[in-house]
Structure formats: structure tokens, C-alpha cells
Design a protein around this nucleic acid. Sequence first.
DNA 1: ATTAACGTTGACGTTAACGTCAACATGGAT
DNA 2: ATCCATGTTGACGTTAACGTCAACGTTAAT
Lengths: 134, 134
Amino acid sequence: MTKNETTLKPSHTIYTISDLAQRFDITTRTIRFYESEGLLSPERQGQKRLYSQRDYTTLKLILRGKRLGWSLAESGELIQMYNPAQNNQAQYQKVLERVQESRGRLQNQLNDIEVMLLELDEHENQVRAAMQKK
Amino acid sequence: MTKNETTLKPSHTIYTISDLAQRFDITTRTIRFYESEGLLSPERQGQKRLYSQRDYTTLKLILRGKRLGWSLAESGELIQMYNPAQNNQAQYQKVLERVQESRGRLQNQLNDIEVMLLELDEHENQVRAAMQKK
DNA sequence: ATTAACGTTGACGTTAACGTCAACATGGAT
DNA sequence: ATCCATGTTGACGTTAACGTCAACGTTAAT
């Protein structure tokens, strides 16, 4: 009885902590901190941590969240959504609601960005106009 | 000799600190803190602060920045860009460079958002599929 | 003249997200 | 056997962005 793999990516790749730290340009301290916050739960070989492809993906998600100003707690909720800890219909429904919430938040941010970009365009035009006048 | 107004908005409107606090749903403490950080510099009537339309706009910009995870220092640079403290060509050039930097950063964030939205779509599909199987 | 509402300036406290450092474990290369 | 690189677990320090007082000023209404 083999395990049912749900992904076709190279999912057997294993990373050490310093390996991940290099790839994402963060410190090992940061990675351990994320674990202590419940965002990661790598395997252990003795006392050493071993990170799977799923951990890699989770980290990528956390860092993307950070670039958007999301707190670790918020990214944690996202991670929960993606983790298959649900089995009944009610749980599925809750996940779908969470998905909608996240989408909403992202849409708001997208909106803010577009306003900012428009204002930058406008300002650039004004500056260029002022440069001509001189 | 009347002052040259560059905007057609109701630019004479004056706000008190608690007024702004209400409108933006923040505390007066926060507003004073932003001033201490050099992001705002309202007029004074005696010891009391009076906020102009420009201050209002600046605050809006700060809060939009916050929703995108920008630090106050970063928003401060944005504010500088919008403030007409430049007069020579070299200064104008620097402003245009800053505008480009900001645009770049916003584009990156926009990119992150789109990736996240796509992943959410994908996940929603998977969850819905799992719901059907049951 | 007194109160109430609103404002001010310190000064110290708090939380999130790590950084820094010390003391120790471990597995392989010399 | 002994380094040495890499890892581990505390414990304490740090920074940004405010919150929370305390003590005091100002002004309009009673």
C-alpha cells in the first residue's frame, strides 16, 4: 500500500534548514521562528529538521504574504486553508468561505495599488510639464 | 496678488485632529505620531493643530501605504515626491527616478497578488471537486 | 467661577517579528 | 581522537508603530 501522492512535482526533495535559508535569503532563525509560530512543522531526523516540498511551498507563501504586508497570523490562516485537515462538507464550506475572504482582501489591495499607480502617472505628468516650462 | 491654487478641490477645508481621526478611523495619538515622524506638518492656531486638505491627502496616502504593508518611512518617501520642494532640473530627475522605483515596487506587489489569486482559484476548484466525490 | 469637551506634551508600556549570543549536540574529514 | 561545519535549544535584546496614562492648557456653556 503506497501513499497517494497528490502532486506531480519533485515532491521527494528534501531541504536542510540552511538550504532553505539560502534559497529564500532569510536566516535559519527566521525559519525556526516560523515553526514556533505553527506555520511550519518539518520532519525530524534525530534532532535535525528536514524540510519537504510542502514546507518549501509554505515558506514561499509566507514570504509572498510578507511582501503584501500580511501578518504571520494571516498567512497562517492561508496555510490552514491549503492543508487537507478537512473531510466533511461543513469543513469544506468553511474553507470556501475563507477563500472568498482572502480573495476580497487581495482585491482591496489590488484596488489600492491601481489608485497609487494612477496617482504616480498623474504626478509624473505634472513633473514633466514643470520641467518643460523652465 | 492672490495665491496660485493648483487644485480645484475644496482646498480651504480645515480639519481638527479628532475630525481626521473620525474620518479615517484612527486615533489622535496615531496622527500626532505621524507628525513626530515627519509625515505631517499641520498649521497651528495657538497650540492646537489645524489640518489642511493637503494633510488630509497625505494621511490617505499613508493609510493606503499601510494597507499594502509599506512602512511609514517608505510612505514618507512617497510624500516627499509629491511635495513641491524641488525647483531645478536635477531635482526633477530624481523625483522621476523615485516615481519609477515606486512603480516597480507596486508592480511586484501586483504580481504577487495575481499569483495568490490564481492559487486561490486552483484551490477552490480542488475543494469543490472533493465535495462532489463525497 | 466652574464644569465639560477638546486639545497638548512627555513618559512609559506593548506587540510582532525577528536578531544576537551562549552553550551544547552530531556527523564526517583528517 | 580531534576538528569543523552544521545543527539545536533557550534566553535576552531590538525596532516599528503605536497604546496608555498623567498632568496640564483653552474655550464655550451653564
